[in-house]
Structures are given as C-alpha cells and as structure tokens.
C-alpha cells in the first residue's frame, strides 16, 4: 500500500490516539510538576475602642479564586510532589533508615507509606492473580476437554460470565456474598467458629478475597484460549507419544503444554496489563482501609471531596506509566530483537 493511502486510512484512528492517549500522557507529566495553589491569606487588623488592636489571619476567597482561575495548573513545584510523603517519601525513608534497627522494622514502616502500600498490593495482585488465573484456566480447559460433548456448550456459557461481567458488578456480587451478613461470610464464620469474623476487619483476609476475585474473573479468559488451543494439538504426536509408552501426565507435560506455550505468553501479556490496573474490586469490596492499588490512589486523589489533587494524581500516574513500561520491557526487547534479525 502506498504511503499516501496508508496515511488516509490510518489518520482518523491515529488522530484519536494522539489526542486522547499520547497528549494526556504529556499533560500528566506537566501537571505532575505543579501543585495546587494554597489559599491566599491576609492579615486584618481590627481595633476596638477599648480592647486595643488584634490582628487576624483571614482567607482572601476572592483573590484565591482569581489566582486559581488565572493559573489552573497551580504553582510550579518541580519534583516536589514526587518526593513528598504521599509519593516516594524520600525524606521519611531516610529517617526510617537511620531510626530502624532491623530490615524487618524498616520494611514494615516503609509499607505504611501510601505510595509503597499501593505499589506493594498492585505488584502482589499482579504476581499472584496472573499465574493462578492461567493455571486454573488451563486445568478447566483440560477437564472440559474430557467431559461429554453435550455439556460443553453450557459449561462455556457459564464460564464466560465472570469474564464479561463489569468488574465493579462482579466485585459487588462477590462482596455481598462474602461480607459478614452474606451467605459465604456466614459460612466462613461458621467454619472458623467465630461469629465476629468479617472480611473487612482482617488485612490478610481482604487480600486473599481480592486475589480470589481476580482469579475468578481471570480464569475464564485463559480457559477459552487454552480450550481452543487443545483442539489443535497434533494428534499424531499424541499417538506416537502413547505408543512410546508416555503416561497421561507425560503426554500433557511434553506434548500439550509445549503446544500451548505461545498461547500462554499471549494470555500472560494481556492479563499482566489488566491486573496491573486493578481498581474496581477495591471500590466494590470497600477495601481501601486494608488494600489500595496505584490506580486506586489516583482515583482517590481525583475524587477528593474538598479539591481534587491533580498534581498528586499526576505524579502517581507518571510513576504508574513507568512501571507499565518496565512490565512491557521484556516483550518490547523480544519484539525488537525478532524485528532486527528479520531482513528488512
């Protein structure tokens, strides 16, 4: 296709992506260097005939609003927002480092800081949910492959539900069952023999439930992809493995799994990207007291009732984007290698 007609065809899509994906990233970068104006204060001296004079500090609402309207970005703050307590907290970490006696003490104090707390949960969620979801999907695919044909349609139908469900709705549906007055929450209390047990009051339990939710919505996707992959496993290879005396598990291990590896890398890539942006379950499970994610703290800054914290949200966003690029780095490097090896 000549360059001219390529440009003609790609232009609408390219403009949309440049305007609403590339430019906003630039806008985030600029915003992260600014911070909201404080209120303008001025001193008023009031004198009464008897009491003498007192000076009072008042908020000059008019001047504050005028300044905010004139400079909507706020004032320039450089890297200040990145380094403050709510983000990288360099000052606090230095203080912890000198004050803490042991590594354990140091880490437990660092993990209390908002940014590191969110980062820790986001990474844990991504690293737990991605492999577990893929593994569960793989086992479901193997099992569904063995059951009678008439059952397969309904099984696939039901399996698709957690995947296509709106994440907020999915997490609410599970949350209502799991909270202390829901059916599963009651069952948990009965099993643990502890009537006061509730998911929300325990940190590890909240994390576990969020992970389970993640696996619940992630597994169907891997299941469907692997199930389709299983239909194309070369039968000859399977049969010759059987003749050579390979056991059932050996056939899965040495024939089926190698056949599915390219699919697994694709699934892993998509799921890593999706799990890293985890936001809705924390809203749905009302879990922010026990677990926050990078997306959630950005959301929280933007939702703030008394004044949205654009600078703070932008700084977290920039660092999140940086992590996404790091996450994609292996893929990008591999593509780059494949590409430069190929003769142009």
């Amino acid at each position: 296709m000549p360059h001219r007609s390529f440009l003609f065809f790609i232009l609408p899509s390219a403009i949309a992506m440049i305007l609403f994906i590339a430019l906003p990233i630039g806008s985030v970068l600029v915003q992260s260097l600014f911070v909201e104006h404080g209120q303008i204060l001025h001193e008023v001296e009031t004198c009464s005939p008897f009491g003498g004079c007192t000076t009072e500090t008042r908020v000059d609402a008019e001047a504050t609003n005028a300044l905010r309207a004139a400079q909507p970005l706020g004032r320039f703050n450089g890297l200040g927002t990145y380094l403050n307590r709510n983000h990288l907290a360099t000052g606090e970490i230095a203080a912890f480092w000198s004050a803490s006696g042991s590594w354990g003490q140091f880490w437990s104090r660092v993990s209390q800081l908002p940014f590191y707390r969110a980062l820790g949960f986001t990474i844990a969620y991504t690293l737990v949910v991605t492999p577990c979801g893929i593994a569960l999907g793989f086992w479901i695919a193997l099992a569904v492959n063995r059951i009678p044909k008439v059952l397969k349609g309904p099984v696939i139908f039901v399996s698709l539900l957690p995947m296509i469900i709106t994440p907020l709705i999915g997490s609410l549906v599970l949350y209502w069952m799991l909270n202390s007055r829901g059916i599963l929450g009651r069952a948990l209390q009965w099993i643990a023999d502890d009537p006061t047990l509730s998911i929300g009051s325990s940190g590890p339990l909240t994390w576990a439930v969020l992970f389970l939710y993640g696996i619940w919505i992630a597994a169907p996707f891997s299941f469907v992809v692997f199930y389709a992959g299983l239909q194309t496993v070369p039968q000859d290879t399977l049969e010759s493995a059987m003749i050579d005396g390979a056991s059932r598990w050996e056939r899965v291990r040495f024939v089926v799994i190698p056949h599915l590896v390219p699919l697994a890398t694709f699934v892993a890539l998509v799921q890593l990207m999706d799990n890293f942006r985890v936001l809705e379950p924390i809203v749905g499970f009302n879990a922010q007291a026990r677990a926050t994610s990078l997306s959630f703290i950005i959301f929280n800054d933007l939702k703030a009732e008394n004044g949205q914290l654009f600078g703070s949200a932008a700084a977290t966003s920039m660092m999140t984007i940086l992590f996404v690029v790091i996450l994609l780095m292996p893929v990008l490097i591999r593509t780059w290698r494949d590409f430069s090896r190929k003769p142009a």
């Binding site: 296709m1 360059h3 390529f6 790609i10 390219a14 992506m17 609403f20 994906i21 590339a22 430019l23 906003p24 990233i25 630039g26 806008s27 985030v28 915003q31 909507p72 970005l73 990207m273 890293f276 942006r277 936001l279 990078l294 997306s295 950005i298 959301f299 800054d301 933007l302 949205q308 654009f310 949200a313 932008a314 966003s317 999140t320 984007i321 996404v324 690029v325 996450l327 994609l328 893929v331 990008l332 593509t335 590409f339 142009a344």
Partner: peptide, 30 residues
C-alpha cells in the same frame, strides 16, 4: 502496508493498550 512503520504503529498501540485508564483520565481533567 508492508512498511516498517505499520509494525511500529502496532507496537505503540500495544503500549497504549497497557496504560491504566485512570492515568489517562488524570491527564484529561484539567
């Protein structure tokens, strides 16, 4: 298109696909 830039556009699209939506939203508001 058989040209290289088509490949790079797809790679850039993949990176864009990975951006958490809320990070973009924080760029839109102001």
């Amino acid at each position: 298109s058989g040209y290289r830039y088509a490949f790079w556009i797809l790679i850039v699209a993949l990176i864009f696909r990975a951006m958490p939506h809320i990070t973009l939203v924080s760029g839109y508001l102001v």
